[in-house]
């Protein structure tokens, strides 16, 4: 078995601060930070209430087109709600759902991955069989199925996404633990009389956190797309909450008659966020974790 040197923070953090490392994805990180900023200060930034509209001003185009006005810079939707304000609050929905769902998936997956990798034996068998089975279910279909049972709400969507995506963590983390287990410091900890749970908590966990973070970044993109897809299909975040996927689903009917701004703007937001998360994740993967490069 090849022994892989664990990537510790020292090897990565050289003298330069991390944002000056070679190839650091400045633009993607700026976009993510901007979206996070917008999500946090949505109440202050949004010019209108995202959930209340007036039928008198429905389907107003963006301001640069005829009939548009600066009061509604990106136009209004089918019930006269301000598109810009809904986008701003939508950032909050996407950020909250995306990050918490990744945390849920990451915690379940990392925990099970460590336990099954370290303990081995029947615990490993059980966890890996379940992982294989859940991986056989197409993620989106499985999520739709769960959403159909428990009904859509923001909290349910988070739990569903967590339940659907933990398997990928479990696989990768288990693999890492299998090689960590053979290393000197773990053997010495056993000799020193540490209990199994202490070894897993104090010695294994800190060494797999790097991979877990890289996976989490890559996962963020996947989770946001799935959340948007669920919302688009009507089993995601329930209306009238402003979610980007939901906005596109609402706007779809208007597309054929020329109300393109209802679908194009939320689409651009989703694209920017997911692409940024993926680019950052890709960079982190290559930078921090040579083992994950083949994924």
């Amino acid at each position: 078995m090849t022994v892989i040197t664990p990537v510790t923070t020292e090897t990565v953090a050289s003298s330069a601060p991390f944002w000056r490392l070679k190839g650091f994805p400045v633009i993607p990180v700026s976009i993510l930070l901007f979206i996070a900023f917008v999500a946090v200060f949505a109440d202050v930034l949004a010019p209108h209430d995202p959930q209340i509209g007036s039928l008198a001003r429905r389907f107003k185009p963006p301001f640069w087109l005829e009939g548009g006005s600066l009061a509604y810079p990106l136009g209004t939707d089918h019930v006269g709600r301000d598109v810009l304000s809904r986008l701003i609050f939508g950032a909050r929905v996407s950020m909250v759902v995306g990050i918490t769902a990744v945390l849920v998936a990451g915690s379940i997956g990392t925990l099970l991955g460590i336990v099954s990798g370290y303990l081995g034996g029947w615990a490993d068998q059980v966890v890996m069989r379940i992982t294989d089975t859940w991986l056989a279910l197409p993620a989106l279909t499985f999520a739709i199925f769960l959403a159909a049972i428990v009904g859509p709400s923001e909290l349910n969507i988070i739990l569903i996404l967590g339940l659907v995506y933990w398997t990928r963590y479990a696989r990768v983390i288990r693999g890492e633990v299998l090689s960590l287990k053979q290393r000197e410091f773990v053997r010495l900890a056993i000799v020193a009389g540490c209990s199994k749970s202490l070894i897993m908590w104090r010695h294994i966990l800190p060494n797999v956190i790097n991979s877990a973070v890289v996976l989490a970044t890559l996962m963020l993109g996947v989770v946001i797309v799935t959340e948007a897809s669920l919302s688009f299909l009507g089993v995601g975040v329930p209306p009238p909450k402003p979610a980007w996927g939901l906005m596109m689903a609402d706007g779809k009917k208007g597309l054929m008659v020329g109300y393109w701004w209802l679908t194009v703007f939320p689409g651009i937001c989703i694209m920017l966020m997911v692409l940024s998360a993926n680019l950052l994740g890709d960079w982190l993967r290559v930078k921090f974790d040579p083992q994950l490069r083949q994924l």
Binding site: M248, A249, G267
Partner: peptide, 15 residues
């Protein structure tokens, strides 16, 4: 291809 949600690609193509 991985980042763009399929419904967005689809809607833009339709547009």
């Amino acid at each position: 291809g991985l980042s763009l949600p399929q419904f967005w690609v689809g809607l833009v193509l339709i547009l």
